[in-house]
Design a protein around this nucleic acid. Structure first.
Lengths: 281, 281
DNA sequence: CGTCTGCTTGATCAGGGTCAACTCAGGTGG
DNA sequence: CCACCTGAGTTGACCCTGATCAAGCAGACG
């Protein structure tokens, strides 16, 4: 079991968060317990033309503490989750217990979508910090799509966005060098923090080197070495979990190992090539 | 707009059947031009409780010849595609023009989903063989979801399935050795062919070694070498594009190949059960 | 018939995985 | 308060997997 250190906390993860019974009250310490549809859409960064201020649709919040598991692989699916605050990871566990990090959901991200297909979650979600999540019961979700047409579009939108993100991930894993992967990871983190209103120049990693490595298809040693190298070059400053971005542009355009050849070769087919390949060299 | 010769036809797929001729009629050589909702659902391998035999909803087919492009990156999105017959690839093109294969859509697969988010296709789809595709205008798609509830579920289903597939892809690229990737690729192809009613033991690859390599995050040389190695061991037989599966179970459980020194002996003894050999991690 | 593209195979080399030693921070308990 | 422990992180040494470079072959096609 190469599981997480806090597994003791998640000892009772079966206590289904979607129960939504107002009975025990220990999980609403943050005070904010419900969001309306407007807030949800805003959080998801999807445009809403009409006004959903009506209290007709309210969505419950649930809090998790760092280390707790939100859902596990194989658990029956009935709820989607939206991150209101906090940081998480979603992982796949292969046939022999090795975990593969798939994403690091943070404010405005949705997860649990992989459960729709088989009606069971195909991945596991774990809180990396204390989290405030919005529950989006799948039933309610589809109902909403029917009654509010633009919300329906939004949902397709979010799912499509996830798919595009995964595609970009595959592309990165398939083509980029270790340095380029780490660099892009830092850039995307920086941008994410900026979107969330935090500093894009100085932030704290919420995940371990091991988790970063798993996410990027690298070992923790390689991640550590690469960060050190960036630090020496002056691209960033590193102190444990604290990262300072010094030269974002360098990180953004960094690529070692130019995948070579294959260049014009690909366009070959009947050469209707659109491309307009912005060359950088 | 810089598209294929059929772009004019697909630009306006909602028109009634009588228009079908349209002028140049070379694309309806297969005779089958329209499918109803039942056929579409069956093709997508999603259960349908009710009966959609009504001719109310008909979906136009379009044929493409090998090498033709169905859509390109950046092209305005308005249509999803379902493969009725034939083989395709979808590719991402990075900033330097290198192509990364994302999937090999075949009968029953849907593609174009990545266009929903930004209203532009984020990938390019190319026919690897002559293809018969079903057009699913996104407008019609969402309308259907509203009027036929189980169809709506089905659509979420298909999108979720795609996402799960991508996740598995990421996991594979991040964790598996070259041999394991090629082995799994062959297994999944075999299973796909079985589903489609073809032989799972003997089939033809529709894609080049280069495309396989791109899909798996490997070079074409590595793919070629790995296939040759599998051939020597007796897992498969290879002759150019023709693949014969000899030991599916070995391929399925393979993680790492024994060193080439030991490999020669194994091959000599026709040893077949050495499959799940040395494991690391 | 020559050319082109796809495929195979060999030789070489380096990126990054593996193993190991060590430091550091935080938590625990005497 | 300090000794101790544990897990995260850093760094070095080594070496293996798979990329790169290169040569040769076969089938398709104008």
């Amino acid at each position: 079991m190469t599981l997480i250190q806090h597994s003791d906390l998640s000892a009772n993860p079966d206590q289904n968060p979607s129960v939504a019974s107002g009975g025990d009250g220990n999980w609403h310490r943050q005070g904010k317990l419900w969001s309306n549809l407007n807030e949800v859409c805003e959080l998801l960064r999807i445009p809403t033309t009409s006004n959903f201020d009506d209290e007709e649709f309210l969505f419950q919040h649930v809090q998790f503490k760092a280390g707790q598991r939100i859902h596990t692989i194989g658990q029956p699916f009935d709820t989607l989750f939206i991150v209101h605050s906090g940081f998480l990871k979603t992982v796949l566990i292969d046939e022999f217990g090795n975990e593969q990090v798939l994403s690091f959901p943070m404010k405005g991200d949705m997860f649990g979508v992989d459960g729709i297909h088989t009606k069971r979650y195909m991945s596991e979600a774990v809180a990396l910090s204390n989290c405030d999540l919005i529950l989006l019961p799948f039933k309610k979700f589809t109902q909403l799509g029917r009654s509010h047409i633009e919300f329906e579009h939004s949902m397709y939108n979010v799912m499509s966005r996830e798919l595009v993100r995964e595609q970009a991930m595959v592309s990165m894993m398939g083509a980029l060098s270790a340095e380029a992967r780490v660099a892009r990871f830092l850039v995307s983190l920086s941008e994410r923090f900026a979107e969330m209103g935090y500093s894009s120049k100085l932030f704290n990693l919420r995940m371990t080197r091991h988790e970063i490595g798993s996410y990027l298809g690298l070992t923790l040693e390689t991640v550590s070495r690469t960060l050190s190298a960036f630090n020496e070059i002056g691209f960033i400053s590193v102190d444990q979990r604290s990262i300072g971005i010094k030269d974002l542009d360098a990180l953004r355009t960094l690529r070692r190992l130019p995948p070579s050849s294959a260049r014009a070769k690909a366009a070959g087919r009947r050469a209707k090539s659109v491309a307009a390949a912005s060359v950088h060299q």
